[in-house]
Design a protein around this nucleic acid. Structure first.
Length: 464
DNA sequence: GGAACTCGCCAC
DNA sequence: AAACGTGGCGAGTTCC
């Protein structure tokens, strides 16, 4: 596949972006090596103990008896051979190459208690070896200087390496609290993140201009709530009820975004019911799945609406998908088709930001690339401007990182409001003037840490 | 003994 | 007709 900036504007964006990101890289982020080393030791101890525990189990002994060579408990190849060849267990999932999978989900489904120890070891090693070790390797004078690169990604997004600043654990609490507690602002400063609200959805809307989607984005209605209502038969939807919020998140991540990216109802159904709804494959029994506040279970609730199994839920979601594209967002659907046809005729796709990809691409690629890429270019444009202004105003605050649709700052406590004001102006006011094809209002969300607080201590901060 | 591969898993 | 996009990176394994 060939890719290139196709306008001077696109070329300039990457030229200035490279210079700005080089400064971001030079700024760096403070790292607490004492805490890191303490966690390294603690994890090593835990891993050793769990390994010991695992090795006295009947499961391990049987595994070792099954083969002549010494077992390496870290080898998924050996584990798959033992489980699926020797013990003849049927895996619930296979890998791309058709072998039985040994990922977290598949091993948990086997309900072999000893395997939980193996998964625990895998998780602890991930934290220690992928994150802490790479942080330690890259530390210079108490700072990390992650690389931010613009020349690797097919969609013209950025990437990060040495260490990768863009995939530090956030959702899973244990991993988050170990890794992010290593990273700090400079002494007396605060960490702050500013990110665009639902940027990719807004950029997609600029391409397809679906009136229903534009209405959602312009009037701030809750699209994910509406879809959750429809998928899960909720007649009174209320985001502030925890169970409803759970189902809303499920609809958002397990269906809406998946459909936007090109997934289809069958995979979404399994994911929604099993991963998000905690229901089993096959038939459902009373009391199974996540619980509502009144004690009812998701299985009971769906049964009341005529759905008592995964296959019935699949049929239900097929209808939802049909409605989603043909009734709710038909103009979005039509854009996907005409955009795909255009690529098939010309052999390339143009981004609104002036970049061009040509060569062999799948349909999903053709639909996703210009959205993902242009969304990042919005962030990069704002980052270049904000970086320039912080220097021009001789401020103490610095940009120290970039995560696709977010900018990470190391801010002087007296400059918090100024940095927000300056950034907000660039992100929501001037950016849509520069890229006049943006057709919905942009929003900024802030997360702020206390003075000398680590990256684990950021809290949502209301922008005035 | 290193390159290239698979697999798993972290982020958006 | 087919079936979710982009990365980085570690460990194990296989190839040469």
């Amino acid at each position: 596949m060939l890719m290139h900036p196709n306008t001077t504007e696109a070329y300039d964006l990457f030229h200035n972006g490279t210079l700005a990101l080089a400064e971001v890289e030079r700024n760096g982020i403070r790292i607490d090596m004492d805490f890191l080393n303490e966690q390294r030791r603690r994890l090593t101890k835990k891993i050793k103990m769990t390994e010991k525990d695992f090795k006295i189990s009947a499961f391990y002994k049987e595994w070792q008896r099954s083969t002549r060579t010494p077992v390496n408990i870290n080898s998924d190849v050996q584990l798959a051979r033992y489980l699926y060849k020797h013990k003849q267990i049927e895996p619930s999932k296979t890998t791309k190459s058709g072998k039985g999978s040994t990922d977290d989900e598949t091993l948990k489904a086997l309900k072999i208690p000893e395997l939980d120890k193996l998964l625990r070891i895998r998780k602890l090693k991930k934290i220690r070896d992928t994150y802490l070790e790479s942080f330690a390797r890259e530390e210079v004078n108490g700072l990390l200087h992650p690389n931010f690169l613009l020349n690797f990604v097919r969609t013209f997004r950025g990437s990060s390496a040495n260490p990768n600043f863009q995939n530090v654990p956030k959702r899973e609490q244990e991993a988050m609290l170990i890794t992010r507690k290593c990273l700090f602002p400079r002494v007396g400063h605060r960490l702050m993140e500013l990110d665009f609200g639902s940027l990719e959805v807004r950029i997609a809307a600029a391409y397809h201009k679906d009136p229903t989607m534009l209405k959602y984005l312009r009037e701030g209605h809750d699209m994910h709530g509406d879809i959750a209502k429809q998928i899960f038969f909720l007649d009174k939807f209320d985001k502030s009820i925890p169970s409803h919020d759970k189902l809303r998140k499920a609809a958002k991540n397990g269906f809406v975004f998946a459909e936007f990216y090109g997934d289809w109802y069958k995979k979404c159904a399994a994911n929604l019911a099993c991963t998000w709804g905690q229901l089993p494959k096959g038939k459902w029994k009373s009391g199974q799945g996540i619980l509502f506040e009144d004690g009812h279970s998701l299985a009971d609730h769906l049964k009341q609406n005529g759905i008592g199994s995964l296959s019935a839920f699949e049929d239900h979601l097929e209808k939802i998908e049909e409605h989603f594209w043909n009734k709710r967002f038909p103009v979005y659907r039509d854009w996907k088709e005409t955009h795909w046809k255009k690529y098939q005729q010309t052999g390339y796709i143009d981004f609104y930001t002036g970049f061009r990809c040509s060569g062999l691409m799948s349909k999903n690629d053709v639909i996703n690339y210009p959205v993902q890429g242009a969304a990042f270019h919005c962030l990069l444009w704002a980052l270049i401007r904000i970086n320039f202004l912080l220097k021009q105003y001789k401020m103490e605050s610095r940009i120290i990182g970039q995560i696709h649709d977010a900018i990470v700052f190391d801010v002087h406590p007296d400059e918090v409001e100024d940095v927000i004001r300056i950034s907000k102006k660039e992100m929501v006011e001037l950016l849509p003037k520069h890229y006049s094809w943006i057709n919905t209002p942009l929003t900024v969300e802030a997360d702020l840490g206390p003075v000398d607080g680590s990256w684990a201590s950021l809290k949502s901060y209301k922008i005035s």
